[in-house]
Computed example of a mutant assay.
Amino acid sequence: MLFSFVRYHDDEKKAWDEFIQQSWNGVFLFYRSFMDYHQERFTDHSLLVYKGKKLKAVLPANENDGVLYSHQGLTYGGWVLSPRFSSSDLDALFLDLEVYLKEQGIRRFEYKQKPYVFDKHPNDSDLWVLWKNGYEMWRRDLSFFIDLKNFAGFARDKRYRFNKAGRNNLRIDEKGDAATYMTLVNENLSRKYNTKAVHSTDEVLLLQNRFPKNIKTILVYREDLFLGGTWMFTDNDFIHTQYLHFNDEGRDLCAAEFLINYLLDTYKDKRYLSFGTSTEKDGTMLNEGLASFKEGFGAAGFCHDFYRKEICR
């Protein structure tokens, strides 16, 4: 085989994190101090991949019931590659991985692609390799983003609401209280969907303390009246609204339009503002209201694909 595989253990943390930092498609979510915040929920089976003695790729992954997954605790995954990693080597990497997985008794591999908007250097070569090697695309989510370099502008109703927001004496707090915000998030999710946020308040605070340059709670107020806001991620050339929630007063006072305009202006050095997915039931159903809300800001859709292949039948 061209490549050799080493299963991640804690003593590889320094090598792993240094590789993420210098890679062409790594993001801060792949640092071990992010991945491991909920490590008790998963059996980690992340991989470090060597070509000779050089570390050339890593794969955030976990194992469950004989299946290797692109890490289920992350929104997206896939290979993290060294600079100038060739397409032919990527093809060989997938083939060598299948040999390794057979040796480990893994019966299926599920691969969660990372959309290009999150990369330093966009590269979809893995999609070609997946197709070439017979992987099944079993799920496709539709997410939305604004291209800040080619911004289409707000739709008419959003422009009206933004102008209205300008008369409402709203203000932004970039160092917002995460506990206050997560209370609102969970109230909204409970009322509308009978569920709660993926992250607990303690986890939000923990991650924000670990990654102060990458994670912010940005809130909107009218004087001292809390209206809502976002828990925002940023890295490479993107900002991403992990949660985007407002209370009734915030909706009445057009706080969402005020906040999105603020993000577009404040982070105009970035390329993409990502809103996340608007599909449900493994991508088979569009949440039309949510999609329309995002499209009103000038957002367009991009696909987030999930693949799988039976390794041992």
Rank of each mutant, 00 (worst) to 15 (best):
R7V: 14
F109K: 04
A178E: 07
P60W: 03
T75Q: 10
S200Q: 14
L253D: 00
M1N: 12
A178W: 08
T284M: 06
C254L: 13
K14W: 11
C303R: 14
F34W: 13
L74A: 08
E223M: 06
V6S: 10
D269Y: 02
K294N: 09
S82G: 02
G105Q: 06
N236R: 13
T180L: 15
L205I: 15
S70I: 08
W24N: 12
K114A: 10
F293W: 06
D237R: 15
G26Y: 09
L47V: 04
L48S: 04
Y76P: 06
L59N: 01
G66F: 06
V129Q: 06
I146N: 02
Y262K: 06
D224S: 12
H304C: 05
P122N: 10
F233A: 09
L219E: 01
G301S: 14
Y8P: 07
N236S: 07
K53M: 09
S143F: 05
N261L: 05
G250Q: 03
E223S: 11
L130Y: 06
L205C: 11
E63Y: 14
V99Q: 11
F233P: 03
E280F: 10
W128P: 00
L48F: 04
D44E: 13
Y69W: 07
T266R: 13
D91T: 11
T183Q: 14
S190E: 12
S46W: 04
A300V: 12
F3T: 03
A255L: 01
V27S: 07
K270V: 00
T241K: 03
K54I: 04
L59F: 08
S278W: 00
G289F: 05
F34K: 03
E40Q: 13
M35N: 00
L253I: 04
F94A: 05
G228P: 00
Y193D: 08
F34C: 08
L264S: 08
D282H: 07
D124I: 08
N150A: 11
A256P: 02
R159H: 05
F258R: 05
G289T: 12
A92R: 14
A299H: 05
E187V: 09
H245I: 04
L264K: 15
A15S: 13
S86T: 15
L259C: 01
Q39D: 00
K114Y: 07
G176K: 06
Y267D: 02
T266P: 02
A300C: 10
R167E: 11
Y135R: 07
K14Q: 14
N247T: 01
F28M: 08
T195K: 13
R191Q: 12
F226W: 04
K158D: 03
E12N: 15
L225V: 09
D65R: 15
Y100K: 09
F226T: 01
I215G: 00
F94T: 04
V58P: 02
L142K: 13
N261C: 08
N186R: 15
F94C: 08
P60N: 11
V198M: 12
K112M: 03
D177K: 12
F233Y: 15
Q22E: 09
K164R: 14
Y31T: 00
M1H: 07
D119C: 14
L170N: 00
K114L: 13
S274Y: 07
D44K: 12
V67M: 05
L253Y: 04
K192R: 14
D36T: 08
A57Q: 02
M232K: 04
C303N: 10
T241M: 09
Y116L: 13
Y243V: 03
I260K: 00
L97Y: 10
L68I: 04
G298K: 03
A61T: 07
T230N: 06
Q104C: 12
M182E: 05
R222D: 01
